[in-house]
Structure formats: C-alpha cells, structure tokens
Write a protein that binds this DNA or RNA. Sequence first.
DNA 1: AGATGTACTGACAAATTCGTCAGTGGATCG
DNA 2: CGATCCACTGACGAATTTGTCAGTACATCT
Lengths: 126, 126
Amino acid sequence: MPVSKKEISPCPIDAMLSVIDGRWKGTILWRLSERPLRTSELRRSIPGITERMLIRHLQELVRDGILVRHQEQTVPPCVRYSISKYGLTLVPVLEVICAWGRNHLKRTSGHGREWSQAAQPHRNVL
Amino acid sequence: MPVSKKEISPCPIDAMLSVIDGRWKGTILWRLSERPLRTSELRRSIPGITERMLIRHLQELVRDGILVRHQEQTVPPCVRYSISKYGLTLVPVLEVICAWGRNHLKRTSGHGREWSQAAQPHRNVL
DNA sequence: AGATGTACTGACAAATTCGTCAGTGGATCG
DNA sequence: CGATCCACTGACGAATTTGTCAGTACATCT
C-alpha cells in the first residue's frame, strides 16, 4: 500500500499522474511546449518558482523521458531543455486536461472569484 | 505562490488536477464509473485504502460536484455514492489519461517489473 | 452478553513534497 | 577587485497529505 504516487503502481492513471504531478510541472511543460528554453530562461518565465524546485522537476521530467537536456560544454555552462519526441505524446493529454479544467474554473467561479479577471500569472491560454 | 494544489489557482491544469489529485481518487472514480456503491462496498473493493482516506476523498469529490451522496434514512445508515452528471464529463478525460498511462507503463517496464503480470489489484482495464 | 457491521469524526503521527539558504567554479562586467 | 550570472547540489525546516487509532449510536447475529 504505497504512500506516494511516486512509487510504481500498476494503475495507468497513477502512472500518468506521477509524471505530471509536481507543483510546477504543468507550467514547465507548458513553457517548453512553445520552444526549448535555458534553465534560467525557464526560471524567469515562471513567476514564483525557485531555482531549486525548477531543477528538481526538470530532472524528474528528464528521468521520465519527457524532456531532453542539451548541454553545450562552455563556460559558463549553457543548458537547454526541450520536449522529447516521447514527451510530445503528452501534449494532447495536457490539452484535454486543460480544456476540462478551464470549464471547471468557469463553473466554480461566481463564488470565490479572486483572480478570475486579473490576467493569469502563468500557463494561461492554450 | 501557493504551496498546495488545493489552493485555487487560475491555471486550468492545476484546477483539473486538484480534482483528481489524491492518493485514491482515481481508483474511487474508476469504481464508481461502473456503478454506484455504498461506502463499505467501495472500501472493500479498493485493497489498501483505509476508511479514513476513503471518506475524506469522497467528501472532497462531493464538494467538487463530481459525486452525489444518497442517504437512506435507516438504521443502520445506508449511504450510496454515484457519479454526478457533471462528474460524467470527467470520465473521457480519465480515459485519455489512462490510455497514456498504460502506454507509459509498457514503455517503463522491461526494467523494474514487479507487478507487470500479476493481475493488477485495481482499476485494471478500461 | 459480546461481537460485528454501518458511516463517520477527531486527534495525532508518519511520509512526502516544497521552499529557503548557503555554497561551487569560472568568466564577464563595472 | 567585488559583483553577477550560470547550472546545480546538499542540508534542513515548513507545509501538506496520508495513515493510524480510538470512539460514536444503534442493530443484528451468535
């Protein structure tokens, strides 16, 4: 009886969620689905994320085969991340999730609207 | 900069994930997508879940409008949960997630196969 | 009479994730 | 020379989620 989603589980849903699950992973994938970015570019493009979390998530996504890490051996180092071929198969799934989520947000607002209008900080449009 | 996915976020992906996110929510929805079940039936059908977690997740799913709680006023009490009309819109999303996850599991196995064959404990086929 | 089942709550501990802080080594900028 | 940027690591505490344990009220089963 696993405690964490991170443990291997035979359940496909858990398997999928364990890949995107992480406070900033969705946002990271969103950013990279537009174009490859350097670590620091990513960090600056995601308000609120810390370098620590960014790197931890990047490493997990690389480990899972979703991202590819290109490193040019220079000084200072220049590392660029991009979505792998395999990672691309994830994009349509994210779109479905996003579509449902957008609808859910509409449904939920009406009460508790704190941000509904204020331009969304990140990962806003599909 | 929220720490939890549970906080309201303007991001549709986060919004969606906050609904399914929870150690056992996927499994619960899977079970209920077949037919309505009583609390205790659910518990018995999900090996490893504790009553506490089951009830916590059920309450969240009801709060989010995904499940409906039918109570027959008898002694002992008989409570039945079913997927709401709104919750049904979630099913196709779960199917997409599940399809990707199943493929991901295949891709990942070959190494670390502890369970690959052993009939999956829950939420096995779609 | 005692055990068991039902649906649930509350308090609390364990596990896991997330965030903060400091530090690396070399180059470039002022 | 000191500051800054780069990509990244390690240690550690805080927040969040999950699990454990006990207890409720009534009824049926043994």
